[in-house]
């Protein structure tokens, strides 16, 4: 496959990861921080931006580790542990780096970065890229798209929830309950995108 078609493929995969195969609304990964942090638009944007950044970088890193370390030694079965270690170390590293280099960015992302280590969407994206046998450029596109899809989902949810503040919600459904129902409806709505792109 030449470079141009590789980039084209990456673009398709990226857009499909945002809309038709949204990691949150189709695969329901990363649901825990999604419900926890979607109360305010401001923190949703912060967390979402951190996810985009970390997901793109760790997908690329994990692709390199997988193809240049695990595959040559026939250790593919170790990818779960390996990916988690890489993600955790990367998040730690980035946190330290931006704390020092850009305090203002750290203020915006800082609280959310450590949270992301345990976000299963990050690990999920890395595992999907292996299952689907993506190349490096496509993997970067996929990471970017998955992150953007997650970002979009949480910002949409935060907007919806901020509108729910003044509504009378039955007591048992307040908080996580109503949020899960809304995610379900959002997921149904996103099924409408299926078929727009046959992205794989």
């Amino acid at each position: 496959m030449n470079l141009t078609s590789e980039f084209y493929h990456a673009l398709i995969v990226c857009i499909s990861a945002i809309f038709t195969q949204n990691i949150l609304l189709t695969y329901f990964l990363g649901l825990c921080p999604f419900i926890g942090s979607s109360r305010e638009i401001k923190s949703a944007i912060g967390l979402g931006a951190a996810v985009i950044f970390v997901m793109t970088c760790t997908c690329a890193l994990n692709w390199l580790v997988y193809h240049y370390v695990l595959v040559p030694f026939h250790l593919e079965f170790f990818r779960f542990i390996m990916f988690i270690i890489v993600i955790a170390a990367f998040v730690q590293f980035v946190e330290m780096a931006i704390d020092r280099l850009s305090p203002s960015l750290y203020q915006r992302l800082g609280v959310f970065l450590p949270l992301i280590t345990v976000n299963c969407a990050i690990l999920g994206a890395a595992l999907f890229m292996v299952i689907r046998d993506y190349g490096f450029i496509v993997t970067v596109g996929y990471g970017l798209g998955s992150g953007t899809g997650w970002f979009m989902a949480i910002v949409l949810m935060a907007n919806i929830r901020s509108r729910l503040h003044n509504d009378a919600i039955p007591k048992g459904l307040q908080g996580a309950g109503i949020t899960l129902i809304i995610v379900g409806i959002m997921a149904l709505a996103f099924i409408g995108f299926t078929g727009v792109l046959a992205g794989r």
Partner: peptide, 21 residues
């Protein structure tokens, strides 16, 4: 391999901490 990679990452973090923190 796993230990080596984990150790390399840990070393990286220690060095980073020394410089950044």
């Amino acid at each position: 391999i796993i230990s080596a990679i984990a150790a390399a990452l840990a070393l990286l973090l220690v060095i980073a901490e020394y410089f950044f923190a």
